[in-house]
Amino acid sequence: MHEELFQKMAQSIIDGDSDASTALAKESIAVGIPPLQAITDGFVIGVNTVGDAFGRGEAFLPELVMAGEAMKAAVAVLNPELKKQGTERRMLGKVVLATVEGDIHEIGKTLVGTMLGSSGFEVYDLGVDASPDKIIGKAIEVNADIIGMSALLTTTMVKQKEVIETLEKEGLRGRFKVMVGGAPITRDWFKSIKADGYSEDAVGAVRVAKQLMGVE
Protein backbone atom coordinates (compact mmCIF):
# COMPACT_ATOMS: atom_id res chain seq x y z
CA MET A 1 0.00 0.00 0.00
CA HIS A 2 2.49 2.56 1.20
CA GLU A 3 5.47 0.82 -0.38
CA GLU A 4 6.86 3.99 -1.94
CA LEU A 5 6.66 5.85 1.36
CA PHE A 6 8.42 3.04 3.21
CA GLN A 7 11.19 3.13 0.63
CA LYS A 8 11.56 6.88 1.07
CA MET A 9 11.76 6.39 4.84
CA ALA A 10 14.56 3.84 4.49
CA GLN A 11 16.34 6.11 2.02
CA SER A 12 16.16 9.10 4.39
CA ILE A 13 18.05 7.02 6.98
CA ILE A 14 20.59 5.80 4.40
CA ASP A 15 21.13 9.44 3.38
CA GLY A 16 21.45 10.46 7.02
CA ASP A 17 18.88 13.18 6.33
CA SER A 18 17.15 14.08 9.61
CA ASP A 19 14.96 16.73 7.96
CA ALA A 20 13.62 14.18 5.47
CA SER A 21 13.11 11.46 8.10
CA THR A 22 11.21 13.93 10.33
CA ALA A 23 8.99 15.00 7.44
CA LEU A 24 8.33 11.39 6.39
CA ALA A 25 7.45 10.42 9.96
CA LYS A 26 4.90 13.24 10.05
CA GLU A 27 3.55 12.22 6.64
CA SER A 28 3.14 8.60 7.80
CA ILE A 29 1.03 9.76 10.74
CA ALA A 30 -1.05 11.97 8.45
CA VAL A 31 -1.84 9.10 6.05
CA GLY A 32 -2.65 6.78 8.94
CA ILE A 33 0.25 4.32 8.88
CA PRO A 34 0.60 2.70 12.31
CA PRO A 35 3.75 4.21 13.84
CA LEU A 36 5.19 0.82 14.71
CA GLN A 37 4.88 -0.24 11.08
CA ALA A 38 6.56 2.99 9.92
CA ILE A 39 9.52 2.09 12.11
CA THR A 40 9.82 -1.59 11.25
CA ASP A 41 8.90 -1.51 7.55
CA GLY A 42 10.44 1.88 6.82
CA PHE A 43 13.10 3.47 8.96
CA VAL A 44 14.69 0.34 10.46
CA ILE A 45 15.28 -1.04 6.94
CA GLY A 46 17.49 2.01 6.34
CA VAL A 47 19.41 1.48 9.60
CA ASN A 48 20.03 -2.15 8.69
CA THR A 49 21.14 -1.24 5.16
CA VAL A 50 23.76 1.18 6.47
CA GLY A 51 24.83 -1.29 9.16
CA ASP A 52 25.29 -4.04 6.58
CA ALA A 53 27.26 -1.72 4.28
CA PHE A 54 29.48 -0.82 7.22
CA GLY A 55 30.01 -4.51 7.93
CA ARG A 56 31.14 -5.01 4.32
CA GLY A 57 33.56 -2.10 4.60
CA GLU A 58 31.52 0.03 2.18
CA ALA A 59 30.20 2.62 4.65
CA PHE A 60 32.08 4.67 7.21
CA LEU A 61 31.54 5.93 10.73
CA PRO A 62 30.05 9.34 9.79
CA GLU A 63 27.41 7.53 7.71
CA LEU A 64 26.53 5.28 10.65
CA VAL A 65 26.25 8.24 12.99
CA MET A 66 24.15 10.29 10.55
CA ALA A 67 21.84 7.32 10.02
CA GLY A 68 21.53 7.08 13.81
CA GLU A 69 20.66 10.76 14.11
CA ALA A 70 18.07 10.54 11.31
CA MET A 71 16.53 7.50 13.02
CA LYS A 72 16.41 9.35 16.33
CA ALA A 73 14.63 12.28 14.65
CA ALA A 74 11.99 10.00 13.09
CA VAL A 75 11.39 8.11 16.33
CA ALA A 76 10.99 11.42 18.20
CA VAL A 77 8.04 12.24 15.92
CA LEU A 78 6.53 8.75 16.13
CA ASN A 79 6.94 8.15 19.88
CA PRO A 80 4.04 10.36 21.10
CA GLU A 81 1.79 8.65 18.53
CA LEU A 82 2.93 5.22 19.75
CA LYS A 83 2.04 6.21 23.32
CA LYS A 84 -1.32 7.60 22.23
CA GLN A 85 -2.19 4.29 20.62
CA GLY A 86 -0.97 2.38 23.67
CA THR A 87 1.54 0.42 21.61
CA GLU A 88 5.21 0.15 22.34
CA ARG A 89 8.27 -0.45 20.27
CA ARG A 90 10.11 -3.53 21.48
CA MET A 91 13.55 -2.40 22.54
CA LEU A 92 16.63 -4.56 23.03
CA GLY A 93 17.25 -3.14 26.46
CA LYS A 94 17.67 -0.03 28.59
CA VAL A 95 21.14 1.49 28.95
CA VAL A 96 22.22 4.17 31.42
CA LEU A 97 25.34 5.86 30.04
CA ALA A 98 27.69 8.27 31.79
CA THR A 99 31.18 9.72 31.83
CA VAL A 100 32.39 9.13 35.39
CA GLU A 101 32.86 11.65 38.19
CA GLY A 102 35.73 14.13 37.72
CA ASP A 103 35.86 13.54 33.97
CA ILE A 104 34.42 15.79 31.28
CA HIS A 105 35.51 13.86 28.18
CA GLU A 106 32.33 12.46 26.69
CA ILE A 107 32.64 12.39 22.91
CA GLY A 108 33.24 8.64 22.74
CA LYS A 109 30.46 7.96 25.22
CA THR A 110 28.01 10.15 23.27
CA LEU A 111 28.94 8.27 20.11
CA VAL A 112 28.26 4.97 21.87
CA GLY A 113 24.86 6.38 22.89
CA THR A 114 23.98 7.29 19.30
CA MET A 115 25.02 3.86 18.02
CA LEU A 116 23.10 2.03 20.76
CA GLY A 117 20.04 4.20 20.15
CA SER A 118 19.96 3.45 16.43
CA SER A 119 20.50 -0.24 17.13
CA GLY A 120 17.31 -0.54 19.19
CA PHE A 121 18.41 0.27 22.74
CA GLU A 122 16.70 2.81 24.95
CA VAL A 123 19.50 5.11 26.08
CA TYR A 124 19.59 7.39 29.14
CA ASP A 125 22.69 9.56 28.80
CA LEU A 126 23.70 11.25 32.07
CA GLY A 127 26.42 13.34 30.40
CA VAL A 128 29.70 14.05 32.21
CA ASP A 129 31.03 14.11 35.76
CA ALA A 130 28.39 11.65 36.99
CA SER A 131 28.82 10.41 40.56
CA PRO A 132 28.34 6.72 41.43
CA ASP A 133 25.13 7.65 43.29
CA LYS A 134 23.76 9.47 40.27
CA ILE A 135 24.57 6.59 37.91
CA ILE A 136 23.18 3.88 40.18
CA GLY A 137 20.16 6.00 41.12
CA LYS A 138 19.23 6.46 37.46
CA ALA A 139 19.74 2.76 36.72
CA ILE A 140 17.33 1.84 39.52
CA GLU A 141 14.84 4.56 38.50
CA VAL A 142 14.53 3.41 34.88
CA ASN A 143 15.09 -0.27 35.70
CA ALA A 144 18.09 -0.39 33.37
CA ASP A 145 19.57 -3.55 31.94
CA ILE A 146 23.02 -2.11 31.33
CA ILE A 147 25.15 0.58 32.95
CA GLY A 148 27.80 1.98 30.59
CA MET A 149 30.66 4.13 31.89
CA SER A 150 33.45 6.00 30.12
CA ALA A 151 36.65 7.62 31.44
CA LEU A 152 39.53 9.32 29.65
CA LEU A 153 41.88 9.90 32.59
CA THR A 154 43.84 7.26 34.49
CA THR A 155 42.89 9.12 37.65
CA THR A 156 39.15 8.96 36.96
CA MET A 157 38.90 5.43 35.59
CA VAL A 158 39.00 4.21 39.20
CA LYS A 159 35.43 5.54 39.47
CA GLN A 160 34.31 2.71 37.21
CA LYS A 161 35.58 0.33 39.86
CA GLU A 162 33.86 2.36 42.59
CA VAL A 163 30.48 2.03 40.89
CA ILE A 164 30.87 -1.74 40.57
CA GLU A 165 31.95 -2.02 44.21
CA THR A 166 29.00 0.09 45.33
CA LEU A 167 26.62 -2.10 43.34
CA GLU A 168 28.09 -5.14 45.06
CA LYS A 169 27.88 -3.59 48.52
CA GLU A 170 24.26 -2.67 48.00
CA GLY A 171 23.36 -6.10 46.68
CA LEU A 172 22.53 -4.68 43.22
CA ARG A 173 25.34 -6.17 41.19
CA GLY A 174 23.24 -9.01 39.79
CA ARG A 175 20.59 -6.57 38.59
CA PHE A 176 22.70 -4.67 36.04
CA LYS A 177 25.27 -5.60 33.41
CA VAL A 178 28.19 -3.13 33.46
CA MET A 179 30.06 -1.98 30.35
CA VAL A 180 33.23 0.15 30.45
CA GLY A 181 35.22 2.06 27.86
CA GLY A 182 37.53 5.02 27.22
CA ALA A 183 41.04 5.59 25.88
CA PRO A 184 42.98 4.30 28.95
CA ILE A 185 40.65 1.33 29.51
CA THR A 186 42.35 -1.95 28.68
CA ARG A 187 41.13 -5.54 28.73
CA ASP A 188 43.22 -6.09 31.88
CA TRP A 189 41.50 -3.21 33.64
CA PHE A 190 38.09 -4.43 32.51
CA LYS A 191 38.85 -7.87 33.93
CA SER A 192 40.37 -6.57 37.16
CA ILE A 193 37.26 -4.54 38.06
CA LYS A 194 35.01 -7.46 37.08
CA ALA A 195 32.88 -5.54 34.59
CA ASP A 196 30.69 -7.49 32.15
CA GLY A 197 31.51 -5.81 28.86
CA TYR A 198 34.28 -3.77 27.24
CA SER A 199 34.90 -2.36 23.81
CA GLU A 200 37.64 -0.22 22.32
CA ASP A 201 35.24 1.64 20.02
CA ALA A 202 31.59 2.59 19.53
CA VAL A 203 30.79 0.01 16.86
CA GLY A 204 32.15 -2.77 19.06
CA ALA A 205 30.14 -1.41 22.00
CA VAL A 206 26.86 -2.20 20.20
CA ARG A 207 28.01 -5.78 19.63
CA VAL A 208 28.96 -6.15 23.30
CA ALA A 209 25.64 -4.67 24.49
CA LYS A 210 23.73 -7.10 22.28
CA GLN A 211 25.75 -10.02 23.64
CA LEU A 212 25.01 -8.91 27.19
CA MET A 213 21.29 -8.86 26.35
CA GLY A 214 21.54 -12.32 24.83
CA VAL A 215 20.71 -11.14 21.32
CA GLU A 216 22.95 -12.32 18.48
Binding site: F54, G57, F60, L61, P62, G108, A183, D201, A202, V203
Partner: peptide, 9 residues
Protein backbone atom coordinates in the same frame (compact mmCIF):
# COMPACT_ATOMS: atom_id res chain seq x y z
CA UNK B 1 42.74 12.57 11.64
CA UNK B 2 40.38 10.03 13.18
CA UNK B 3 40.01 6.68 11.49
CA UNK B 4 37.15 6.75 8.98
CA UNK B 5 35.83 3.36 9.98
CA UNK B 6 36.12 3.40 13.75
CA UNK B 7 36.54 7.05 14.67
CA UNK B 8 39.64 5.91 16.52
CA UNK B 9 42.70 7.99 17.30
Amino acid sequence: ASDLRLGAY
